[in-house]
Amino acid sequence: MRKGNFLNFFPALPVIRIDISTWIAIPVLLVLIILQMVVIPRFTLIQGMADLMLLGLCAWSLQRKVHNAWQWAIIGGLMAGYVSAFPWYVPVLGYITVVGLAMLLRRRLWQVPILAMFILTFLGTILFDLALLTVLRLQNVSIPLVEALNTITLPSLLLNFFLTIPFFALFSELADWIYPEELEV
């Protein structure tokens, strides 16, 4: 044992290494949450509105080179939970579930990522809205389920579909920028 190296006393300490793309998640998701709070509420369809954080996480987790989507889901969920009136753990668990779904879809539909993106947007929006409605129900809020589906969930789904392709393209570019292709010489 070398003298003065106190780390040698703790050989079993895990080395926490944070990838550059995890650091990039903070500004990217911060921009998304600000846009979500300031811009998106002005562009509603009936009562529904797009969920930029959900779309961003879907698009990011479906990128072939990305392996840290879980971390993005946690960061995004914590940000959304902090600004939202819902309990903080609802967005965190919701986005982690969406990323889990993305992993499953990535294995099965790896050749057609854009189709996977549409399926994930559909499933993610429905599941996330169901989770939010369940939380409200647990808080003894009366919910007209059919009305909520017609006036909020379905319009939100349509708006999310409109933004699916631009988001996928944007996050593909971001993934290419963070993980550039290695050229064989």
Binding site: M37, P41, T44, Q47, A85, I152
Partner: peptide, 14 residues
């Protein structure tokens, strides 16, 4: 008013 709730099921403003 500098922001709105990010989910449509509840009505809050910041």
């Amino acid at each position: 008013v500098i922001g709105r709730e990010n989910y449509p099921f509840v009505q809050y403003a910041i």
